[in-house]
């Protein structure tokens, strides 16, 4: 490899296209890995990209970026339905279950979603089924007050499933539009806690089906995010991801692997700690932020 440098890039460029592009390809790969897309998904996406570049003849680095962005958007399947099932049906409130690992942003996201719904003229009940973490119910109650929703809570240490059940019951009795159930954070490798979550869902379903189960994924999460999505889906059949904390420097690339492997779409993104810092997921915007920074 040292001898190649003697010739310099100019000559090499004439001699071999593949060699010419090596640095560029490395850079493409590093962009993806640096965004937490992961080695497997990156290898796959870059492989497809190389194929396309070969078919199209040469590509400049800029063209390559554009092709990469297209490839990533395709991986995120923009056709996928990303609407939130949060509207009442047949006079029964929509029921949303919010799950995820500790500190990902579940309670905050409940508050933000309620805010959007209330602003749209809907009525919302928030169920404080995190009966475990210190002051978790108070935190949700604060959010409820902030956004104009009702909160249903039980005593500290109460059975989370029964609080969730009561919240939905209250929602039905009061004829509200949406019930959002906040659950305690749990790491997906804790079998007992995952069983508990399964029970919460089963008990809630005595009132009828859960319309949406949202997994909250922190954008700073690395490769473990895929495992989170896999296990939570196994236990409570996740229907959508909310990618939080995208207002920081993290790119959240793990959701690409999550969607490729498990077919679970990102529906919403969290962009701050305030009530209005929630936005629909836009694949193109997300990808531009992912590849754009070092373009």
């Amino acid at each position: 490899s040292r001898s190649q440098n003697v010739f310099g890039k100019g000559l090499l460029a004439l001699l071999s296209r593949d060699k010419l592009d090596d640095d560029t390809w490395d850079e493409v790969e590093e962009t993806l890995i640096g965004a937490d897309v992961g080695v497997a998904a990156t290898t796959d996406i870059v492989g497809k990209l190389r194929e396309r570049a070969r078919i199209h003849g040469t590509a400049t680095a800029t063209e390559l970026r554009a092709m990469l962005a297209d490839e990533l958007v395709a991986a995120l399947d923009p056709q996928m339905d990303r609407t939130l099932a949060a509207r009442p049906q047949d006079g029964r409130p929509a029921v949303l279950l919010v799950v995820g690992v500790n500190g990902a942003g579940k309670t905050t996201t409940c508050g933000k979603i309620a805010r959007v719904l209330v602003a749209d003229g809907h009525t919302v009940v928030l169920g404080a089924a995190d009966t475990f973490r210190a002051a978790a119910a108070e935190q949700l109650a604060t959010w409820a007050g902030r956004v104009g929703a009702e909160v249903v809570r039980g005593p500290e240490g109460a059975d989370p499933a029964s609080v969730a059940f009561d919240a939905v019951k209250r929602g039905i009795d009061a004829g509200v539009d949406t019930v959002l159930i906040d659950t305690a954070g749990r790491l997906q490798n804790k079998v007992g806690l995952m069983d508990e979550l399964g029970k919460v869902k089963r008990v809630v379903e005595k009132h009828g089906p859960v319309d949406e189960t949202l997994l909250i994924l922190d954008a700073t999460t690395g490769q473990n995010g895929l495992e989170q999505a896999r296990v939570f889906t196994e236990v409570v059949d996740v229907t959508g991801v909310v990618l939080t904390k995208l207002d920081g420097t993290a790119k959240g690339g793990i959701v690409i692997a999550v969607q490729r492997k498990l077919g679970i779409p990102v529906k919403l993104v969290g962009l701050g700690e305030g009530p209005d810092d929630l936005a629909p997921f836009d694949a193109r915007q997300f990808v531009d932020a992912l590849v754009g920074a070092d373009a």
Binding site: A219, T221, G222, Q223, A250
Partner: peptide, 8 residues
């Protein structure tokens, strides 16, 4: 810092 954090 959270042990689950990735490249960030």
């Amino acid at each position: 810092i959270d042990a689950m954090v990735g490249q960030d």
